[in-house]
Simulated assay, not measured.
Amino acid sequence: MQIYLPIADLPVNIFLILAMGAAVGFVSGLFGIGGGFLMTPLLIFLGIAPAVAVASVASHIAASSFSGAISYWRRRAIDPALAGVLLCGGIIGTALGVSTFTLLRALGQLDLMIALSYVALLTSVGGVMAWEGLRAMLRTRRGIVIPARRSGSHGWIHGLPLKMRFKRSKIYLSIIPVVLVGIFIGFLGAVMGIGGGFILVPIMIYVLRVPTSTVIGTSMVLTLVTMLFATMLHAITNHLVDAVLALILMVGGVTGAQFGARAGQKIRGEQLRLLLGLLILAVGIRFAVELVIRPEDMFTIRETGVTE
Rank of each mutant, 00 (worst) to 15 (best):
A8V: 04
N13Y: 07
N13L: 04
I14M: 15
L16P: 00
I17Q: 03
M20I: 13
A22Q: 04
G32F: 06
G32L: 07
G34P: 09
G35D: 01
L43W: 07
G47S: 02
A51K: 11
V52K: 10
V52Q: 14
A55W: 06
A55L: 12
S59A: 08
I61E: 06
S67H: 08
G68F: 03
R74T: 05
R75Y: 06
R75L: 14
T102C: 07
T102Y: 13
R105Q: 11
Q109H: 13
L110P: 03
Y118H: 05
T123G: 03
V125W: 06
E132C: 14
R135S: 15
A136W: 06
A136D: 10
R142V: 00
R142E: 09
I146G: 13
A148E: 15
R150H: 11
G152M: 13
K163Y: 14
K167S: 13
S169F: 08
S169T: 03
K170H: 12
Y172K: 12
Y172T: 12
V178Q: 00
V179R: 02
L180T: 11
F184G: 06
F198Q: 05
L200V: 00
L200D: 07
I203F: 10
Y206C: 01
V207S: 13
V210E: 08
S213V: 14
T214Q: 05
V215I: 11
I216M: 14
V221W: 05
V225T: 11
T226I: 09
L228V: 05
V244K: 10
L249G: 04
T255Q: 07
F259H: 04
G260A: 13
Q265Y: 01
G269H: 15
L276R: 01
L278A: 07
L281C: 11
I285V: 15
E290S: 15
R294K: 12
R294E: 12
E296C: 03
E303Y: 15
V306T: 05
